[in-house]
Design a protein around this nucleic acid. Structure first.
Length: 314
DNA sequence: CGCGTTTGACCGGCGC
DNA sequence: GCGCCGGTCAAACGCG
């Protein structure tokens, strides 16, 4: 079984989880967050699927892709909306797949403009060419009130087994930082959605314990559709306009995530028929796309996903 | 030339 | 108060 297929499968698996299980996970109280920012008694994907209608999904995957869920890597996906801890630290441990969800988020604030958390100036350079016209005054309220303490955007973190760090997800991202992660030899990259007035961010880091796993954390939610230059089609368009993504903590990103293999080998990732075109994405591999579209997997997916994402849960 | 990445510095929260 | 560390900024740079 190739990695590509694994990735494919895993994404599907994750997507299924996201659609149903994560949405319905019992709410974990923030106070239950443990040492590492995790709910001690958090949910594993296995648990979720054992107690869920995922069986049908499993069989579907088994039939179509010839994989067995139990033998495949499963991602960790979690929602972190309040925890102050870094949810991506130590995500992968001996008990790898844990899922926690918290629904006590005040994600009422408008996603537009800046969240205000990053409004600060530098004395060194005066001109901010960025669109941060918001900070008229130089002094950013470092003495901001406590109550105005930066309210964290809902965050979703999940793991992906991929050789590339930055997974293509349909949106355009601009990297704005990279930091070395403590206790890890792999750096963490910070990306921001390039769409104006969209302050969705994501962090990408490679697991220290399992270098084959990429941990992606999304923060915030897109306030815009996919980049218009995308030639959405069929399943893709349907998926991105689907209403099941209403929970703000879940962006479309995870559904668009595609693990291109850097080696150039065709990665039949979940492209959903999107043209790579002017995306100019970092790790886009046009060959993979083309091959993918021409191959039978694309047609296969077009059949698979509608049934998965729009299936009615019992 | 426009857009994205790199990278060192800076900021702010937090623990000691 | 100090240092650590995560997160962000923005100039410089690279690329198509």
């Amino acid at each position: 079984m190739s990695n590509e297929t694994k990735d494919l499968y895993s994404y599907q698996y994750l997507s299924s989880l996201s659609l149903y299980e994560l949405m319905n996970l019992p709410t974990s109280t923030p106070s239950s967050y443990g040492n590492n920012g995790f709910v001690p008694s958090s949910y594993s994907l296995a648990d979720c699927f054992q107690s869920s209608p995922g069986a049908a999904y499993d069989s579907l995957l088994h039939k179509t892709l010839g994989v067995s869920p139990s033998s495949s890597e499963v991602f960790n996906s979690l929602v972190d909306q309040e925890s102050k801890h870094d949810v991506t630290n130590d995500v992968i441990g001996e008990t790898p797949t844990r899922v926690s969800a918290s629904s006590s988020s005040s994600e009422a604030d408008l996603p537009g403009e800046d969240s205000g958390k990053s409004q600060r100036k530098r004395e060194l350079v005066g001109d901010g060419r960025e669109e941060n016209q918001n900070q008229s005054s130089k002094k950013v309220g470092k003495t901001k009130k406590k109550e105005e303490k930066k309210q964290r955007e809902p965050r979703v973190s999940f793991m992906t087994k991929s050789e590339v760090d930055h997974l293509e997800d349909g949106y355009r991202w601009r990297k704005y930082g990279q930091k070395a992660v403590k206790n890890s030899i792999y750096p963490r990259s910070y990306y921001r959605c390039t769409t104006q007035r969209c302050n969705v961010k994501k962090r990408v880091e490679r697991s220290f314990q399992d270098p084959t796993v990429v941990i992606t954390t999304y923060e915030g939610q897109h306030n815009h559709p996919l980049p218009t230059n995308l030639r959405g089609s069929s399943a893709a368009a349907a998926m991105y306009s689907a209403d099941f993504m209403t929970p703000g903590s879940f962006t479309h990103d995870m559904f668009r995530s595609s693990a291109y293999t850097s080696g150039g080998s065709a990665a039949a990732a979940l492209d959903y028929g999107y043209e790579q075109s002017s995306y100019g994405s970092v790790n886009a591999n046009p060959n993979a796309h083309q091959e993918y579209r021409q191959g039978g997997e694309y047609e296969l997916l077009k059949e698979i996903f509608p049934s998965i994402f729009f299936k009615q849960e019992p």
